[in-house]
C-alpha cells in the first residue's frame, strides 16, 4: 500500500468519525472538541490533495479562528442547563432516515463516474509547482492566472482575469462583518433570571 493511501484513510476516518461524534454527542463542549479534531483532519486531507495553502488556511482560520470563537460562545452560554440538551427521539429517527437517504444518494453519485474513481496513473509526473505553491494562488487573487498561460484554448481565456474582484468584495465584506458583529454583540444586556429558560 502507498503511504499516501494509508494517510488518506487515516485522515478520512478521523474526519468522518469525529463528524459523526459531533452529531451523536449531546454535550456542547465535547461537540466543539470533536469538531476541532474533525476539521483539523480535513486540513490533513487538503495537504494530501496537494493544496498546502488551503490546508494551512483551514488550520489558521477555521480551526484557529472560527472554532476559538465558537468555543468562546459555548463558554459564555455554558449555563448548566444548556450544556447538555437532549433531542427528542422522534427527531432522531426522522433525521437518521433523511440523512441516510441523502448519504446514500451522495455516495452513489460520488462513485458513479468511472473517471473519478481511480487516480491518474502518472502521479509521479505531477510536479509540485502545480498548485502547491502559494505564489500562484496569490497571483490569481491579484488577477493573474499564471497556471492558465499555457492554455491555448480561447474559451478558457475568460478565466484568465483571476479573482481580483471577488477578493476585493470579500475584503469589504469582512470589514462589514467585523463592524456588524461588534455592533450586535455590544447590545445592552437585559437583566433577567437566567433560569427562566430552563424547561
Amino acid at each position: 500500500m502507498n503511504w499516501h493511501t494509508l494517510l488518506f484513510y487515516l485522515f478520512a476516518l478521523m474526519s468522518c468519525g469525529f463528524a459523526i461524534a459531533v452529531v451523536a454527542s449531546s454535550n456542547v463542549v465535547r461537540m466543539a472538541f470533536f469538531l476541532i479534531v474533525s476539521l483539523a483532519s480535513t486540513a490533513g486531507l487538503f495537504f494530501l490533495a496537494g493544496a498546502h495553502f488551503v490546508g494551512a488556511m483551514q488550520i489558521m482560520i477555521y480551526v484557529g479562528g472560527t472554532l476559538v470563537l465558537l468555543i468562546f460562545g459555548v463558554m459564555l452560554t455554558a449555563h448548566a442547563a444548556f450544556v447538555s440538551m437532549v433531542t427528542k427521539s422522534s427527531d432522531w429517527v426522522l433525521a437518521a432516515v433523511f440523512g441516510g437517504a441523502l448519504l446514500g444518494l451522495l455516495a452513489l453519485t460520488a462513485f458513479s463516474v468511472e473517471d473519478w474513481r481511480v487516480a491518474r496513473g502518472d502521479q509521479a509526473a505531477v510536479t509540485s509547482s502545480e498548485g502547491e505553491f502559494a505564489s500562484s494562488i496569490g497571483q490569481a487573487l491579484m488577477g493573474m492566472r499564471v497556471d492558465r498561460l499555457s492554455e491555448g484554448n480561447s474559451q478558457l481565456e475568460a478565466g484568465m482575469s483571476g479573482y481580483l474582484l471577488p477578493f476585493e468584495i470579500i475584503a469589504i465584506h469582512l470589514l462589514v462583518v467585523l463592524i456588524g458583529a461588534a455592533y450586535l454583540a455590544r447590545t445592552k444586556r437585559r437583566v433577567g433570571s437566567v433560569t427562566e429558560g430552563v424547561q
Partner: peptide, 20 residues
C-alpha cells in the same frame, strides 16, 4: 491510489453529518 470519489465520499459524510 485513492481517486476523487474517495474524497467525495468523505465530503458527503461530513455534509450529511452537518445537515443532521
Amino acid at each position: 491510489p485513492v481517486g476523487v470519489s474517495h474524497f467525495l465520499l468523505v465530503g458527503a459524510v461530513m455534509f450529511v453529518c452537518g445537515v443532521v
